[in-house]
Amino acid sequence: MHCQECGTRQATLHFTKIVNGEKTEFHICESCAREKGEIVPGTSGGFSIHSLLSGLIDFDTASKVQSGASKAAQPLRCEECGMTYTQFSKAGRFGCSSCYEYFDERLNPLFKKVHGSTTHVGKIPKRGGSQIQVKRQLDDLKAELQKRILEEEFEAAATLRDQIRELEKGLSE
């Protein structure tokens, strides 16, 4: 099949574009595609996960700027590695672990979009993570306690209460 644009070269890209529900089929060669600036997945300069991602990140910045929320002259910047939020939004990657703290206010919407969530619930390092483990255990115990109280199982509730006290004592020490 010949390219529908130049009519001479072999059409190597075949794709369907859907705009507002209207379907258009394209059969074109690579050089015409580049000329037309079509974004064709799988070709260089097209989509990659990082460019897609930086689109998402940019979107946040754009909406922030529009609403006038960040008119501060100081650009948002990680003091640890020096990466600015703009650089992050272009690269789609953080410079260091401190970037997570410095950019924190902007990250929730991003993580929501990418992961549908903002909080880690998985594995915790054994060392240094013990506090978190205790906190999680406490949350579980407290939920259990509420349940027991509602079900009027006071004996079990009392045992749980003691366990919670014990754990909380350990945390505050």
Binding site: I49, H50, L53, G92, R93, F94, S97, Y100, L107, L110, F111, V114, H115, T118, T119, H120, G122, K123, I124, P125, G128, G129, I132
Partner: peptide, 18 residues
């Protein structure tokens, strides 16, 4: 590099957490 809320911190936001 680990954070209570974000989990294991990674270079790309698509890997953070676990």
């Amino acid at each position: 590099a680990f954070d209570d809320t974000r989990g294991y911190l990674t270079s790309c936001p698509t890997n953070v957490g676990t």
